[in-house]
Amino acid sequence: MSFHQKYFFGLMVFFMGVDPLCNIALAIETAPVVKVESRSPLSVSLLERGVKHNISISKKINDEIEGVYTDLHLQDLNGDGVHEVVATLENHGGVNQCSKAYVVNLSDYSLDNLVFDSGPLCNYKIYHKYLISSYREGAIWREDVYKIEGRTAQVVFADSCIGCGEVVRRKYDLRGNYFQYLARDSRDFEKRSPILAIVSSMRAEVFSSPVVLSRKYLTRGDKVIVIQVDDSRSDISWVKFRYEGEIITDGWVKCDDIDYCNSL
């Protein structure tokens, strides 16, 4: 056998061995494909590694969708490659176009509700790894920012009064606890940074509540996060704050003791 024959024979053997490995890798990397087979009654299937599975749908989910939600579509809400089922209501000229979302449970091939605890899912949009729900409640706009992990929608920020000049923000941790403070107003939720104030008095007394003095003090130059402003009293305005120094301090200071009140 000549050199060229040996060379091409070796290449054939190499590619014959590689091709099955590539097919295996592609099968592993390809995300399961969700398909809506029927809208009434709702029927959903999942194609996973070449095998088709019929998705079990409870009567409760069928009843809440059928005849109520006119728009039914598939969308990958969390970026994992597996599409969720999204049912959207007609808004009939209103500002809130709200939806329900359902996730396919790959462990038992059922359809589960994706629950949004902070508020309704309306006028939603996807930004990077975040799902943002924006809706008007009464006269104010609210925006809830979620991260979706599996079947759980974990709220990260809950912002109210978008467009009011200052936003009331709740920042949540993984356990569902939140810290509420005032943030700068912006259409972009990532630009809603905490409103900071600097102590302008030489020594600012800290109160556990308005007019109830504690034994704590802030000094000129200390930076505090503004949580709330209380100007309901005619004699003096108060600011609820958090000071994140070596020790976290929460309390109230007189408005005159910080520079923030100069802009009010």
Rank of each mutant, 00 (worst) to 15 (best):
D71Q: 15
K35Y: 07
M12G: 09
Y102P: 00
V51S: 13
L111H: 02
V103T: 06
V86S: 06
K52F: 04
L89P: 01
S58R: 08
E37N: 09
V86D: 07
S118P: 02
L114V: 06
I24S: 14
V103L: 03
I28V: 15
I65V: 12
N105S: 10
P32I: 06
A27F: 13
R39W: 04
V68H: 11
H92Q: 07
E66Y: 02
K35N: 11
V44R: 00
A25M: 13
A101E: 05
A27P: 09
I65L: 11
V103S: 01
K59A: 09
H92K: 08
I57A: 02
A25V: 14
S58F: 09
L42K: 02
V34W: 05
Q75Y: 05
K52N: 10
L26R: 14
Q75M: 10
S110L: 05
E66S: 07
N54E: 08
Y69L: 12
E48P: 07
S40M: 06
F14N: 10
V33P: 01
E90R: 10
N78W: 00
G93S: 04
L106Y: 00
L74E: 08
L21G: 10
H53D: 04
S56P: 00
V104K: 00
L46P: 00
K52C: 06
D117L: 07
N78V: 03
V51I: 15
I65R: 05
D108H: 05
F116E: 02
L74F: 10
G94E: 07
I24E: 14
L89G: 03
V103D: 01
T70Y: 09
K100V: 05
K59V: 02
T70R: 12
V85H: 03
G93Q: 05
F15D: 10
P41V: 03
L72T: 07
F116Q: 01
L26D: 14
R49L: 15
G50D: 14
K100M: 07
N23A: 13
Q97C: 12
S45P: 01
G17C: 13
H92I: 00
L114H: 06
